[in-house]
């Protein structure tokens, strides 16, 4: 198991953003769904070792992120795309990705090849030398994805990765997700249920800091049979689960 969390809680003041979450998942693409404020981003930030949990236990890649040495090892094998991507506008795409490759302690000899591969994989090859300030929102998002995958991570965390991508790029991204999911654990937090349906083998639906549903996309579709509202089967399942927990 690459992710094993038990009774994980994160409080911000009086607010429990994540409230006793249990989750175990191995290689593959894992979708994290939920309405705004459900706690998806807080859970992802804990998985990214950016913030520590308030309570509960967490093991990532069979290592304990609470300890310094293991956390360092996890971070070498981690890729993270936060919801709000920070970037230095004066960097080129290559410099941006290379900077993260070097920070992730990739062997120096491998860096040029890995950077080139990551930039190509997100379709920014023709803009490799462009400054980030000249890119569109979707392109910036792709540059963010490239920095996340540059070290071929075992654990990949994407927070709203397809925001700003055009339909063609979204399709390509889903394909990339499936490819990455063959060797790594990829956690994708998103509002777009069609992304989940197309790319994820497993999905969890969060509501008010807790996991209200965990299973395959098909199981989520089944929950929506004859219930809920929505245009697509997954949307109906999503609505049905939320309606049930809100009662």
């Amino acid at each position: 198991m690459n992710i094993e969390i038990t009774d994980l809680t994160r409080r911000f003041g009086r607010t429990r953003a994540v409230d006793g979450v249990d989750l175990r998942t191995g290689t593959g693409v894992f979708g994290l769904l939920g309405p705004n404020g459900a706690g998806k981003t807080s859970l992802l930030r804990m998985l990214a070792t950016v913030i520590p949990p308030s309570s509960g236990s967490m093991r990532l890649l069979d290592l304990d992120p609470a300890r310094h040495g293991p956390r360092r090892e996890i971070r070498r094998r981690l890729g993270y795309l936060p919801q709000n991507l920070g970037y230095y506008p004066g960097f080129t795409v290559v410099e941006f990705v290379e900077y993260f490759a070097l920070l992730k302690e990739m062997p120096p000899r491998e860096v040029p090849r890995a950077v080139a591969a990551a930039v190509e994989r997100v379709g920014l090859g023709d803009r490799a030398k462009a400054k980030l300030r000249t890119l569109s929102g979707g392109m910036l998002r792709r540059a963010g994805i490239a920095q996340a995958i540059v070290n071929e991570p075992r654990l990949l965390l994407f927070d709203e990765p397809t925001a700003g991508l055009d339909p063609e790029q979204r399709v390509e991204f889903r394909s990339l997700l499936r490819e990455l999911g063959r060797t790594s654990t990829v956690v994708v937090s998103t509002h777009l249920v069609e992304d989940v349906g197309a790319a994820c083998a497993e999905v969890a639906l969060m509501h008010q800091g807790r996991i209200a549903f965990q299973g395959t996309p098909d199981e989520l579709v089944a929950r929506g049979a004859g219930h809920g509202t929505g245009d697509a089967p997954l949307e109906r399942g999503y609505s049905a689960v939320l309606a049930a927990v809100r009662v």
Partner: peptide
């Protein structure tokens, strides 16, 4: 001041 935010904080000990 860092422009990168959390994506940088989640990297290794070189930072």
């Amino acid at each position: 001041r860092t422009p990168f935010g959390e994506s940088e904080r989640a990297t290794g000990p070189r930072l």
